[in-house]
Design a protein around this nucleic acid. Structure first.
Lengths: 246, 246
DNA sequence: CAGTGGTCTAGACCACTCG
DNA sequence: GAGTGGTCTAGACCACTGC
C-alpha cells in the first residue's frame, strides 16, 4: 500500500502545529495569514484551510481584526473525547503502552443471553440471526483500564476471523475482512455501578461508579454494523472534553 | 442591538439543512456542488463552505467521486454533547421548557468551605481572594434535572449582580457585566454517587450513579474565569456523542 | 469515461480591533 | 487608519467512484 503525498494544506497544518509545540510563538500570537502564505509560498486560502482545521481541534482561536492565537490550556490535554476513535489509540495518547486481551468470544444468535433485545433492534436483527460476540479487556502493565463488549452481525464479515486476529481493533478487521467499513459511532454516556463480571474483570470494588459507553457503529451508508458496551476505570482514565461557544 | 445579515454561506447552509429536514432528498443523496451553486446563484466555494459545516455537524457525509449524502441516524439525535453550551439550551433541545432556580448565593473567599483548593488553583486565586458562589437548579415541570455549582472570582465582574439576574445563564451575565467573555470550557466527565445535598436537590435516592462535569471556563485570552461542578439526572437526560473516524 | 468531491490559486472587498 | 481575519468569486486541475 503506497502512501500518497499529504496535501499542501495538511503540510501547512502540521508545520504550524510543530511551530506551536516547539514554542516558537512565546507570546501566543501566530503570524498573519498573508505573512504565513508568503513565507510558505502558498496561497492565503491554503493557509486559511490549515488554520481552520487547527481551530476545529481547539489548538488555536482566531479573532477578526485582532489576530490568531494559541490555546495553551487545550494543548495541555492529552486526549479529548471527540478525538477518540480506537481505545488503543486513546490509551497511547495518555502515555500508556496498552495490551489487549480477548476475554470471551462466541458465535451466537440474536435472542440469546449474550444479545439483548436492544442490541438486536439496534442492529436490525431478526431472532436467530447469527452474530459474533467479542469481549475485550485493555490493560496497562497488567492493570485493566477498559472493558469492551462488541456484537457484530455475521453478515458484515466476508470470512471467518481467526481467534488471534480478534485482538486487533475491530475497525481494522472490518477494513480488511468486512463488507463495509466502520464510519462513525453514536454513543450514549451512561453512569453505572460496577457489578459482577465488570467489577471482576476491571478489578475494582463492586459498587464503584463508572462511566459506560452504550454505542452503535454505522458504515458510510448509515447502516448499523456493530453494537458495543464499554466500561472505563475512572481512576486510571479521565475522559475530557472541550465545550465551545456556538 | 441590530442584527447583521447572515453571510451567504450561512444562508446556503440553513437552506440545505431545511431541504434535508423537509425530506426533499428521499434517497439521501444531495445534489452535486456545481448544481447547487448554479441553482442558488453562488460560487461553488460558498456551497462547499456550507456543506463543510454541515459535515462537521454530522448531518451529511461526503465521498470523493461518489457524492454527498444525508446522515439520517445523526439527525435523529436531539442534542449532542459537543453542541452543549448553556444547559438551558440543551434542555430546550430535548423538548423541555426548563425553569431555573437559584438555590444558593454567597460572596465568599478562596479557602472557605465552599471553595476547595482545587477550585482556587484552577482559577489562579490566592487565599482570601473574593469570589462569587452560585448554586443553580434546572427543572422541567418542577422536576430537577441538572444541578450546577459555579465559582467566579469577583474581579471578572465590573459591578455587583442583582440577585434576580443570577437566574440567567452565566455566560450572558459575563457578556453584559464582565471584564471578559466566556470562550470555552475544558470539562472532565466524572462518574459519582449522588450523596447529601446532590441527592436531596435532584430528588433521587442517595447512592444513585450520576454523571458529573468538573469544568473550568476560559476567556478568549485563555485565562480561567469560572469553575463549575454539575450533576445530571441520567434518567431524564441522556448525554450523547458522535465519534467519527479520524 | 463521465461525473463527483478534493485541492489550490489570485484577487477583491468587507468587518472588525486596536493603538 | 493600518492591519487583521471573514466572505466571496471564477476558474483550474486532480483523485476517485461507479456505470
Amino acid at each position: 500500500m503506497l502512501k500518497r503525498a499529504p496535501s499542501l494544506t495538511d503540510q501547512v497544518k502540521s508545520h504550524i502545529k510543530e511551530l506551536i509545540l516547539n514554542g516558537e510563538f512565546p507570546d501566543g500570537r501566530i503570524p498573519a495569514e498573508m505573512e504565513l502564505a508568503e513565507v510558505l509560498g502558498v496561497s492565503r486560502t491554503t493557509v486559511r484551510d490549515a488554520l481552520g482545521r487547527l481551530e476545529m481541534e481547539g489548538a488555536i482561536n482566531r479573532r477578526q481584526g485582532a489576530g490568531t492565537f494559541v490555546n495553551d490550556p487545550v494543548l495541555q490535554i492529552r486526549s479529548r473525547l471527540e478525538e477518540i476513535w480506537s481505545y488503543e489509540a486513546m490509551l497511547q495518547a495518555h502515555g500508556f503502552a496498552p495490551s489487549t486481551v480477548v476475554v470471551e468470544v462466541a458465535s451466537t444468535t440474536a435472542g440469546s443471553d449474550m444479545v439483548g433485545s436492544g442490541t438486536a433492534e439496534a442492529l436490525n436483527l431478526e431472532a436467530h440471526d447469527p452474530v459474533l460476540f467479542v469481549k475485550k479487556l485493555f490493560l496497562e502493565n497488567d492493570v485493566p483500564v477498559i472493558l469492551a463488549c462488541n456484537v457484530l452481525p455475521d453478515w458484515v464479515f466476508t470470512r471467518v476471523i481467526d481467534q488471534d486476529e480478534l485482538k486487533r481493533p475491530i475497525y481494522e478487521l472490518l477494513d480488511e475482512y468486512g463488507l463495509s467499513r466502520l464510519s462513525y459511532y453514536l454513543t450514549e454516556i451512561v453512569p453505572v455501578l460496577a457489578v459482577d463480571d465488570v467489577s471482576d474483570l476491571l478489578q475494582i470494588a463492586p459498587g464503584t461508579p463508572l462511566i459506560s459507553f452504550d454505542e452503535t457503529g454505522y458504515d458510510a451508508d448509515n447502516h448499523p454494523i456493530i453494537k458495543s458496551y464499554s466500561y472505563f476505570r475512572d481512576d486510571l482514565l479521565r475522559l475530557r472534553l472541550m465545550r465551545r461557544r456556538v
